[in-house]
Amino acid sequence: MNDDRAPARAPEDLAQLFNARANAGDIEGLVALYEPDATLAVGEVKARGHDEIRRFFADLLAKKSSFPEVRTMEPVASGDVALTVALLPKGRISAEIARRQSNGCWLWAVDQLKIDPA
């Protein structure tokens, strides 16, 4: 999926890129959606930085090969920072903090997935 490694030009692009890359099994493409020192939290698992995020996605993609389209809320932006939210199946929610990079593209700095519905 190397031809789909286009960067996110807006915060709302990140979820769509995530879904496409996850379904393609593109671990490096997923990692590329995060800042180098980003934090990913899924339940009790916390991955910090590209190496740990890469390991997390390698494990995830080894167990799961299909990622359904998700509904997203309109991002809430303030300058170079935005809150993105994805509404996932079974009542799960993913909330992320995205940041505009010096090249104008957006990457996630923090990603929190709530596994169990409230």
Rank of each mutant, 00 (worst) to 15 (best):
F18R: 05
N19W: 11
N19L: 14
A20M: 10
R21A: 06
A22R: 07
A22N: 02
A22P: 01
A22M: 11
N23Q: 06
A24S: 07
G25A: 04
G25F: 09
I27D: 07
E28A: 05
E28I: 07
E28K: 05
G29T: 08
G29K: 11
L30Q: 00
A32L: 02
L33Q: 04
L33E: 00
Y34F: 15
P36H: 03
D37Q: 15
D37P: 07
D37M: 03
A38D: 02
A38P: 00
L40E: 10
A41Y: 04
A41G: 01
V42K: 09
E44T: 14
E44I: 10
K46L: 11
K46I: 11
A47Y: 04
R48F: 09
R48S: 13
G49L: 06
H50R: 12
H50A: 15
H50T: 14
E52L: 11
I53S: 02
I53A: 02
I53C: 01
R55S: 14
R55M: 09
R55N: 11
F56H: 15
F57Q: 12
A58V: 14
L60R: 06
L60H: 03
A62F: 05
S65F: 02
S65T: 15
S65E: 13
F67S: 03
F67R: 07
M73T: 14
P75C: 03
P75Y: 02
A77V: 01
A77T: 04
G79H: 08
L83T: 03
L83V: 09
L83W: 00
T84M: 06
V85W: 05
V85F: 04
A86H: 01
P89D: 08
P89K: 04
P89S: 05
P89V: 08
K90L: 07
G91Y: 06
G91F: 04
R92P: 12
R92N: 09
R92V: 06
I93S: 12
I93K: 15
A95V: 10
A95G: 08
E96A: 00
E96F: 00
I97L: 00
A98M: 01
R99L: 04
R99C: 03
Q101H: 10
Q101G: 06
Q101S: 13
S102F: 04
S102P: 00
N103K: 07
N103G: 08
C105P: 01
W106C: 04
L107I: 05
L107C: 05
